[in-house]
Computed example of a mutant assay.
Amino acid sequence: MISAAGSTLTQAGTDLDLHRSVLHSRPYQVVVWNDPVNLMSYVAWVFRSYFGYSREKAHRLMLQVHREGRSVVAAGPREKAERDVTAMHGYGLQATLEEAE
């Protein structure tokens, strides 16, 4: 008789749990992209309103979007980053999700 501890089924379950753990602990970034539609003041207002950033931080991130074409505005677990991207879309901003390096 084979013990449960040595079974392939238990090993596969452990591997799956490890994979899920790594997937959920990996940080993701919310990237906001420049667009020709939204005013810079509006973009800064969105960052202050949604993320709760100070005027200075929101302004700095907005300028980065404007000058460099994109800015990482938040990072965290995948589920939260997905919610943030969806929220940015709700405000009319172009945003994507990417794995943090």
Rank of each mutant, 00 (worst) to 15 (best):
G13A: 11
L16V: 09
Q29L: 15
S41N: 07
R26Y: 01
E98R: 14
E68A: 14
V32M: 06
E98S: 09
D17R: 12
A12K: 00
H66G: 02
Y50R: 04
A75M: 13
R20S: 04
G69E: 02
Y42D: 01
R20T: 00
K80C: 06
V46L: 11
A87T: 06
S21F: 00
Y42C: 01
D35T: 05
R60Y: 14
L63Q: 15
M1Y: 06
M40Y: 05
A5F: 14
H24V: 12
A44E: 10
S25P: 05
A74D: 12
E68I: 00
L16D: 05
A58N: 11
A95I: 02
S25W: 01
D17Y: 02
W45D: 05
L93Q: 04
L18P: 00
R60Q: 15
D35V: 02
Q11D: 09
G92W: 09
H59D: 13
L61W: 09
E68M: 12
H66L: 00
K80M: 12
Y42S: 01
T96H: 04
L23T: 11
Y91R: 05
G76D: 10
S7T: 09
P27V: 09
S41R: 09
R78Q: 15
Y91H: 06
A81C: 15
D35S: 06
L97V: 10
M1G: 08
G6Y: 14
M62L: 07
Y53S: 07
L93R: 02
T86Q: 10
T96W: 03
F51R: 08
A44P: 03
R20D: 10
G76C: 09
Y50F: 14
A58G: 12
R78A: 14
P27W: 07
W45I: 06
F51T: 06
R20L: 05
T86R: 10
M40N: 00
V37L: 02
E79V: 14
L18Y: 08
V37D: 00
L16W: 04
V37E: 01
V85R: 11
V65C: 03
Y50N: 03
M1Q: 04
L93H: 03
G92D: 03
Q64I: 13
V73C: 12
T14C: 06
V30R: 08
V46C: 11
A12H: 01
L97D: 01
L93V: 03
Q94A: 02
W45E: 08
G69F: 08
Y28K: 08
V32E: 07
S54C: 14
D84R: 08
R48E: 10
R48C: 04
G6L: 14
A95M: 04
T8H: 00
T14V: 13
V46F: 07
T14E: 13
E68V: 05
R70Q: 15
I2S: 05
H66R: 05
S21T: 11
Q29T: 12
V46G: 01
P27K: 05
A87L: 02
A95L: 03
V37M: 00
N34H: 08
Y91T: 03
S41H: 06
E101Q: 13
R55E: 15
P27A: 13
P77A: 15
A81Y: 10
Q11S: 12
I2T: 06
D84I: 09
S25Q: 09
V43S: 01
L61C: 11
A74R: 10
S7F: 12
G69C: 05
L97H: 11
F51E: 11
A58K: 08
Q29A: 13
M62C: 04
E79P: 01
P27S: 11
A12R: 00
